[in-house]
Nucleic acid binder design. Structure first.
Lengths: 223, 223
DNA sequence: CCAGTAATGTAATGGCTATTACGCCTTCGC
DNA sequence: GCGAAGGCGTAATAGCCATTACATTACTGG
């Protein structure tokens, strides 16, 4: 072990996974041959098969090493001493950034393409990414409710609604990767305000004070 | 032409497309061989190649024949003489039904899997399904606004937000097709109420009648 | 019923790529 | 330095499937 406490095989393993990671993202799983991976990473086919068994094993390893849930982020941002509205705004920015990350989009595409052949695989992915994050978010809502923050709906339902706003973008991006305008006409702040009004939570207007509502104001009629 | 005004070749064409449609949905595009299609549909490989050129041509034909936008539905339901809230509720039910239709889910999966190889293809699909429907929905919101219905946000943004609630389910279903509980903790009616509150539209409570506004005119008009 | 055309069935072809086999070379512990 | 393990490189193997070719059969229109 000449370097950083890792065996030769271990270093090869990491090189393979990194190479496959890059190639899978750039050209997709099907279009990436194992020779591509070996050429990119160095090493040999024999070693690759010894390490991962077969191509699918390599994919599994790549996902296992790289797919992370956002639940940590939810817990960190959620534990800040700030108003729920402000926390949700930060979370919105974070989700928008992470869900549209090319890596995440590419992984989603790969998993979806494989979901017929390997169902437990895609279920694991969904569980690790979306469900885990949703649960964490639901716990946050539940905590707020316990603390006396008022809002409509269930914590789980609200978590899904909040996540859903950003997952729709991910879906869109998975189909036409950057080629075409996504459906995100709504900036993050507007979405969060929409969401806050939707669940009837105080602080709907993140910038100004909420006005008294004694009757509808004249609408702004520009067409 | 012995039957219903269609040539022999035309009938074969339809049989091929129907067979490919079924097989693509059941076992995916990659896993379906052209021999599978011929076996299922009858006919011969030679005829299939004469008709579609190659496998991708067959896929194109299948999608072209079967993919339909929801914009007609939006126009039909949207032109009913009913309150916006009621119309949105109906649209919500319709979207929930159509977006989770196995055919739609399967097509989405196929298109996403191919979006790296054939970008114009997936762009066309996205345009035909989502964008078209979104545009139609946006026009509906714009019309309501012209008629004096009050709501926040832009018609386009609201259309995306409304669609997004159901597209998130589609994405979820594309990953784990029915295996695992989707994220639709929220029933359609609850979602629509959430949405109505979110955009600040009257009729958030779908059971009671919308009150008269003292600013602009009462809202139900015919165009 | 007949000729000609159109469709069929079967059997190549060919390319691609996952997977395996094996002899050579490098590295590692001593 | 030395002698094994353990990787490396290259070259088969092998299966799968899109695509093509062709001889045979079925249909069509008169």
């Amino acid at each position: 072990m000449t370097e950083c406490g890792r065996s030769r095989l271990d270093r090869r393993r990491i090189a393979f996974i990194d190479a496959a990671h890059d190639l899978f993202i750039k050209q997709g799983y099907e279009s990436t041959t194992l020779v591509d991976v070996v050429t990119y990473a160095g090493g040999s086919l024999a070693t690759l098969y010894k390490l991962f068994g077969n191509k699918e094993g390599l994919l599994t390893a790549v996902l296992y090493e790289n797919v992370r849930s956002c639940d940590i982020v939810v817990q960190q941002i959620g534990s800040r001493d700030a108003a729920p509205a402000a926390i949700l705004l930060d979370l919105g920015h974070e989700f928008a950034r992470r869900f549209l990350d090319p890596e995440r989009v590419a992984f989603s595409r790969i998993v979806i393409a494989h979901s017929l052949k390997n169902q437990e695989f895609s279920t694991m992915f969904h569980q690790t990414t979306q469900v885990r994050t949703g649960d964490s978010l639901a716990r946050l809502f539940a905590r707020w409710r316990n603390q006396g923050v008022e809002f409509l709906g269930t914590p789980e339902g609200n978590a899904d609604l909040f996540l859903g706003m950003f997952i729709a973008d991910l879906y869109c991006e998975a189909i036409n990767h950057g080629a075409i305008t996504c459906n995100s006409h709504q900036a993050v702040a507007e979405r969060v305000e929409f969401f806050l009004r939707g669940i009837g939570m105080k602080g709907a207007n993140l910038t100004e004070k909420a006005p008294d509502a004694d009757g509808p104001k004249p609408a702004v009629l520009e067409v």
